[in-house]
Design a binder for these strands. Structure first.
Length: 437
RNA sequence: GGGCUCGUAGUGAAGUUGGCCUAUCACGCCUCCCUGUCACGGAGGAGAUCGCCGGUUCGAAUCCGGUCGGGCCCGCCA
């Protein structure tokens, strides 16, 4: 029966079989050390028999092996145990040299990212690389845990759409049996519709953005966590839910993956249970006073302001996550609720910023049918357009006050680990220049 | 879409004010030596027409023009 690398120390003195990939070989003449990689990590195999070593002649890292030997306690071995008197079976021989090295950290310099992604298929076997995605997987699990604990229902909505009606980001167009279709830029309409069914829903799915952005924080296929919740008392409820979720996920990630995060040079976590909140106008003022660059005429936050306010909140509030609230009505979308307290000068929408970038937008929605029709018309949008009919039907048949967020998983993982580019947090990233692997 | 920047063995880098470059180093690869390695060590070896095209020059990895392919920032956005 197969024993996993991490379990070998539990079979001291017994014969064990391990299966995995040849990760490293060190030949010291009469003694050969092999590192075998399986899903749990590495185990060391010591071989003295020259005929056994000879089986590996001409075989490269990546060769799939089955090894039978004796589990032996050995303080000099990594993990305190190793396999002796091994006999090797080559399951899948590999004769091609790997295009990049997988037993040492890979270069993540921006100049070398192209090589990193060109060789992604093999490079992901690098243990530092796979750690990133183990942490990502764990975070996704924590998000789901939190949301299930709060009675959210996970949904799946279509990514092939008849047309772009939501507005905002550029959309991809494609041929759909002779008709034009688009790829979903977000599940916005569907998740709101589903509030009418389950009150609380979420989806983790790709969203497609055809923007010609070439920065360290943009990709054309992004994994979004979309949340929508009904029967909220106000915008506060949305912010609190997102805040509690992020606190839960980050705390747990640092608690359970601290060693991996440290080995990836992730920054220490500076977080409070209650995230500081600043209005966009306050941030403009603070930034202008703090840097001497006047941004008070800006409608949105500039990338540098996002960085700056995160630094400010870290120092001033002891928290690396911060909400920017009360966005001005210039960036209002028709389905968002205007702030009744200031006569609609600002929107009941906030951005969650974390370690310098926007991670999520968290608006309250306009749930009154008549009010929304009014807001559509005010923006020159035709409510009679067939693309809106199903969406509006849900409102006609009753949607409670609701709100939610669009949350960028890739950016979140990038910043949690302290990576420099969103693409490093994605297995096979898609951007304006890359469609493969 | 705008601005800036980069391109040298499989990988990462040095050289880039023209000649010392017949292009250097490290990792990886091949051969041999090595019984406790864990970035093993030692000896030797193969591997690059310096992204591509053209120009200037006695002479170009190096200067100029074009072209292709990257990267970073802004705008837009998650």
């Amino acid at each position: 029966m197969r024993v996993l690398s991490s379990e070998v120390s539990k079979f001291i003195g017994k014969s064990v079989v391990v299966e995995g990939w040849l990760h490293k070989k060190r030949l010291l003449g009469g003694l050969t050390f092999l590192n075998i990689r399986d899903r749990r990590g590495l185990v060391q195999v010591v071989i003295k028999d020259k005929d056994e070593v000879e089986k590996l002649r001409g075989l490269q890292i990546g060769t799939v092996l089955r090894i039978e030997g004796t589990a032996t306690e050995e303080p000099r071995a990594p993990g305190g145990a190793e396999i002796h008197d091994a006999s090797l079976t080559v399951v899948v021989p590999v004769t091609d040299e790997p295009p990049i090295e997988i037993d040492k950290p890979l270069s993540h310099k921006s100049d070398n990212l192209d090589t990193l992604f060109d060789n992604r298929v093999v490079g992901l076997r690098n243990l530092q690389e796979s750690k990133i995605f183990a942490i990502r997987s764990a975070c996704l699990r924590y998000f789901r845990e939190f949301l299930h604990q709060h009675e959210f229902v996970e949904i799946n909505t279509p990514k092939l759409l008849a047309g772009a009606t939501e507005g905002g980001a550029e959309v991809f167009k494609l041929d759909y049996f002779g008709k034009e279709a688009t790829l979903a830029q977000s599940p916005q309409f569907y998740k709101q519709i589903m509030v009418g069914v389950f009150e609380r829903v979420f989806e983790i799915a790709p969203a497609y953005r055809a923007e010609l952005s070439a920065t360290t924080r943009h990709v054309s296929e992004v994994t979004m966590l979309d949340i929508e919740m009904g029967f909220i008392k106000g915008h506060e409820d949305v912010l609190n839910m997102v805040q509690d979720m992020v606190f839960y996920v980050l705390s747990k990630a640092y608690e359970e993956h601290g060693a991996d995060l440290k080995s990836l040079n992730a920054p220490d976590l500076t977080l409070q249970e209650k995230f500081p909140r600043y209005t966009v106008a306050e941030i403009h003022d603070l930034y202008t006073k703090g840097t001497g660059t006047d941004t008070t005429k800006e409608k949105d936050l500039t990338p540098d302001e996002e960085k700056w306010i995160c630094e400010y909140a870290k120092k001033h509030d002891g928290c690396e996550a911060v909400f920017a609230t009360n966005f001005p009505r210039e960036v209002h979308k028709f389905y968002q609720m205007l702030n009744p307290e200031d006569g609609g000068e600002t929107i009941l929408a906030a951005d969650l910023l974390f370690r310098g970038v926007e991670i999520a937008t968290c608006p309250m929605r306009e749930h009154h049918y008549d009010k929304m029709i009014e807001q559509m018309k005010a923006k020159g949008i035709d409510p009679e357009h067939p693309g809106f009919s199903h969406y509006l039907l849900a409102f006609k048949h009753g949607l409670p006050p609701h709100g939610g967020c669009g949350f960028g998983i890739d950016r979140f993982v990038e910043k949690t680990i302290g990576l420099a580019n969103i693409k490093e947090a994605i297995l096979f990233p898609r951007d304006i220049n890359r469609l493969a692997p």
